[in-house]
Simulated assay, not measured.
Amino acid sequence: MTTTTYGDAIRLGFDYLLSRHPEVFVMGQGLWSPWYVGNSMTDLEKKFGTDRVIDTPVSESACTGAAIGASLYGYRPIVVHPRMDFMLYCMDAIVNQAAKWSSTFGGQAHPAVTIRGVINRGGEQGSQHSQALHAWFAHIPGLRVVMPATVADARDMLIAAVLCDDPVLYIDDRWLYGRTAEIAPIATPPLPLHLMGPALLESGTDLTLVGASYTTTQCLEVADALRQQGVSCDVIDLRVINPLDCGLVARSVEKTGRLLVVDGGWSTCGLAGEVIAQAAERVPLGAWKSSPRRVTLPDAPAPSAGNLEDAYYPQASGIEAIARACLAAC
């Protein structure tokens, strides 16, 4: 076992891929700068060369389109967008091209491109640098979307995404970069992406808590606080949000009778609502002990002022209060 951080685990994933797969290369803005990508790519350009770790001009659309084209010629490119907000410039390439090619050409073309989108919130960056747009991409058939929450998944899901023959959106959150954990060596061979699904991180009988990426860590924090009060929770990390598998969530709710979903996006047409809808479709009415609840961002753009950010982003204490309301309902 090795102790490492979330950000360093991403770097380990890049190192593994670049070392063993000559068809892999990385391109994007600021890849040689910790200001853009933290410690997740430190010195990779020195180890593997600037022809494989390419710091590009500022053109999200051009970089993404070029990577998709390269993937159709046998490469496995990784495009890095240090802020998800500016992936909006390349929506046509992702939604109308990468996600559609396999279906359009009867499975004869597979754009094995990985698009890394970084959620970079807080720090008074304002509404145009703070968005988590994962629900948008999870809506698109043909595009796999993963959101690793744990240190091990940060490494292993990156490897699985790049070795997958489908286009994959890999979303990581800067708020997770400093988290530390012990991780095992990379499996031989690495676990393929289609075998990765939701994970039960903690087991309990009173409440089902569901999160993805950073909100999974908040669910674990809330579960720990509730445990001190004699309440046990199932904590489920979704990990993959397209295709979304809510079977584990439904089975958990049949046991606990209560569901609280925590999502880092907005409520309307969001991930939390989809999880609740799928659970409602699968779990018999008689199994519910209280109405399902969700915690999301307010339906407003992110503020710039630090004191308003504290109120805008859900905190563990507020999530715990809603969890207690679920437990109190009959």
Rank of each mutant, 00 (worst) to 15 (best):
F25N: 10
A98M: 12
T256Y: 00
G257L: 05
M1D: 13
P189E: 09
L200C: 14
G28H: 05
V118D: 12
R179T: 11
P243Y: 05
D8E: 15
A279L: 04
S71W: 07
C326A: 14
R116C: 09
P22C: 09
T64N: 01
V283H: 03
M91K: 14
D15Y: 00
C164P: 06
P284S: 13
P82D: 06
Q315T: 13
G204S: 07
E182Q: 14
A109L: 15
L31N: 04
A181E: 15
I236H: 06
L220V: 12
S304K: 14
G257C: 05
A311P: 01
A187M: 09
D8R: 15
W175E: 10
T217Y: 14
V113N: 07
G74Y: 03
M196P: 02
Y36I: 01
V79Y: 01
E23R: 00
P303N: 11
A199W: 01
Y313A: 06
P57I: 12
T4C: 03
G230V: 11
L226I: 12
P284H: 09
V151F: 07
A160E: 06
A223I: 11
L248N: 03
Y16C: 03
I115G: 01
A277Y: 02
G178S: 08
G117R: 04
T114R: 03
T296C: 15
A138S: 15
R239D: 03
C63F: 03
D310K: 11
L88M: 13
G117Q: 02
A329D: 15
E281P: 00
Q315M: 04
V283N: 04
S232I: 12
V168C: 02
H194V: 15
G13Y: 13
I186S: 07
A154M: 06
C90V: 09
V253M: 04
K46N: 12
I322W: 02
Y177D: 11
I159L: 01
S304E: 10
P141A: 06
R20S: 13
M84A: 11
D234M: 07
R227T: 13
Y75H: 14
G123E: 02
T50A: 12
Q229V: 09
V231Q: 10
V95M: 11
S61Q: 13
